[in-house]
Computed example of a mutant assay.
Amino acid sequence: MESTNTSSPPPVSICATDDQMILQTSLLLRVNVVLMTTVAIVTFILTYKALFILKQRVIFHKSTKILLYISLVFVNVHEVIFMVIQCVAFMRSFTLNDKPCEIMRTTLECRFKNHVLIFGIAGMNFNQFGLTIDRLLATVIPQTYSNLGSLPGVLISILVIGSSIAAPLIIAIGDPYDDIVPNCFFFPEHSAPRANVFLIILSALVIVSIFFNFIIIFVNKKLEKGTRYYVIQRYQKREALISTRIIVYIAASQFLGLALYSTIVLTLRLHKSMIPVTMYHNIVWWAYTVPFAAVALPALLIHRINQVGSNRKRVINRITAKVETQEEHMKSLKELWG
Rank of each mutant, 00 (worst) to 15 (best):
M279Q: 14
R135D: 02
A172C: 12
M36H: 06
K49E: 11
S209P: 01
L51T: 09
N311R: 10
L258A: 07
A251R: 02
V88L: 07
N282A: 08
V88Y: 00
V39E: 09
A138P: 01
G162Q: 02
N32G: 10
I232L: 15
W285R: 15
F52K: 15
L297T: 14
A16K: 04
I170Y: 13
T267C: 10
L35A: 12
M124D: 06
D98Q: 15
F112P: 03
I171V: 15
C110N: 01
I170G: 05
V42G: 05
V80F: 12
G309N: 10
D19Y: 03
R269W: 08
G226V: 07
V284L: 12
A122P: 02
K62A: 08
L199D: 09
V73D: 08
S209F: 03
D134H: 04
I14V: 10
T325G: 12
P276S: 10
I118P: 04
E102W: 13
V208H: 00
I66Y: 03
E2S: 05
L29N: 05
L131R: 01
I180T: 06
V248C: 11
L205Y: 06
T278F: 05
I170E: 02
P10G: 13
V231P: 01
T4A: 09
T47K: 04
T25K: 09
V116N: 03
V77K: 02
A251C: 12
M91T: 09
L23H: 01
V197P: 02
L297S: 08
S8G: 08
T38A: 14
I215Q: 07
M36Q: 13
R92I: 00
H78F: 13
P11G: 13
T144W: 11
V140H: 10
E79Y: 00
I275F: 10
P100S: 14
F129G: 08
N183S: 13
T227Y: 09
N311E: 10
T6Q: 15
I242A: 11
A195G: 14
T43H: 10
T4F: 06
V295W: 00
N127K: 06
F74K: 01
V265C: 11
I171A: 11
L270S: 10
F255M: 09
I316K: 13
L108P: 02
V290N: 08
A122H: 04
A167G: 04
D178I: 04
V116Q: 00
L270H: 11
I22V: 14
N114V: 01
Q56P: 00
T244M: 08
P291S: 03
V315L: 09
L256N: 03
K222N: 10
N282Y: 06
I246V: 13
I210H: 04
Q236G: 04
E102F: 13
M330P: 00
E239C: 07
S262H: 11
S146R: 13
M36Y: 12
I121V: 15
N97E: 06
F82Y: 15
P142Y: 09
H115E: 15
